[in-house]
Design a protein around this nucleic acid. Structure first.
Lengths: 198, 198
DNA sequence: CCAACGTGGGACACCGATGTTCCAAAAATA
DNA sequence: TATTTTTGGAACATCGGTGTCCCACGTTGG
């Protein structure tokens, strides 16, 4: 028996992961997917799922936290605050795309952040979750100031477009419309230049 | 009693509309919103709602059909097959944006078309629903051929980006991030030129 | 080989959503 | 105003998802 909650090591971590992944996929398809389905998808007894996550609420919180975790570590290693804005943005997009499925789940439901924070704790409606977007907003602003990003539109809009395009790219890959390896490049291309030729 | 189903005229049409609209909004927020909530939102007794749409299934089918209806009539009057591609695309985007909330509901759930066709009738998995996108795909192809749209990416990708950006725009307007009247122009600008300056 | 751990599945009570029926009140129409 | 249409709400049975408990089986590791 260890003391820290961090290292539940052994079989447990694996099943936990399996459940988390299955839940992310299932919940992406249907936000209200029955726990039974999730358990089945994870190849785990409904009982076991319940043993790891007593509540449905605890499960979704964990899934959100997990996805958020992956994402923000991806973003962090993109070092958005370093180097020229355009390159930084390209690194960021690549990192986001690489986060893959968790992202789809996260962005699929606009209401996902309402009433929850990254840890699954309920939070006041005033807390928007600026933590994750702030460095990105900085990057966008920096880019606009440097004359590489369109200064005629708001940073918030650029941010929305960023998320939207990344989402579209991941979705296209999931549907087989776009090859996995081409996603990042395509998203970057469209993000920077749109679809019209000069 | 009239014979035609088309003209149920009178009070009925109004309540029907109210229910349909309320349902579109409620279902956009939560695909599994309780009928009671929808009825309440429509300012209608749960009983009445049930009188118009016996099944939940019939309700969502009707909402989908309705949204699809609005959208395709909007698109139709954009005359995408006439005039230079760039202008046609601009008209199309404006028309889509104008369709507004129904669109959000439609695009929110990627699985919405699975197992249903425009009339709410179940249909084989092979029927993809090309009816609505086909003229748009034609437009894109036409634009690529004419050298106004990026020929380096697939038409399917351009289509995805189009839907995605329109969705992002509508969502931004809904959240108040972007002024209603600015949505179309902003979407068009970004769609054509991306967010980078040449 | 034996114990502890982890698991699956059945049985159960509970609750919210759904769909049905009926009736009295409100609204539209003549 | 009289009549028909339309509505809202209560009561009810049903169903599926949820959460809990318990026990037998398989797996892991000493």
């Amino acid at each position: 028996m260890s003391r820290a909650a961090a290292a539940e090591s052994g079989t447990r971590n694996r099943t936990r992961r399996a459940i988390l992944d299955a839940a992310a996929t299932a919940l992406y398809r249907n936000r209200k997917a029955p726990l039974a389905d999730i358990a089945a998808a994870a190849d785990v007894g409904r009982s076991t799922l319940h043993r790891y996550f007593p509540d449905r609420e605890e499960l979704v919180s964990a899934v959100i936290a997990d996805a958020l975790q992956r994402l923000s570590s991806s973003v962090e290693e993109a070092r958005v605050d370093e180097g020229p804005p355009r390159e930084a943005m390209r690194r960021l997009i690549a990192a986001m795309v690489a986060s893959g499925d968790g992202l789809l789940f996260l962005l699929h439901d606009p209401n996902i952040f309402e009433g929850l924070d990254a840890n699954g704790e309920p939070c006041g409606a005033d807390a928007e979750d600026p933590d994750h977007d702030l460095p990105v907003l900085d990057l966008i602003e920096r880019g606009q100031a440097a004359g590489v990003f369109d200064p005629e539109v708001s940073t918030a809009w650029v941010l929305s477009v960023l998320w939207g395009l990344v989402y579209t790219g991941c979705e296209a890959a999931n549907e087989g419309t776009l090859a996995r390896h081409a996603v990042a490049a395509t998203v970057i291309r469209t993000f920077e230049n749109g679809v019209a030729v000069t």
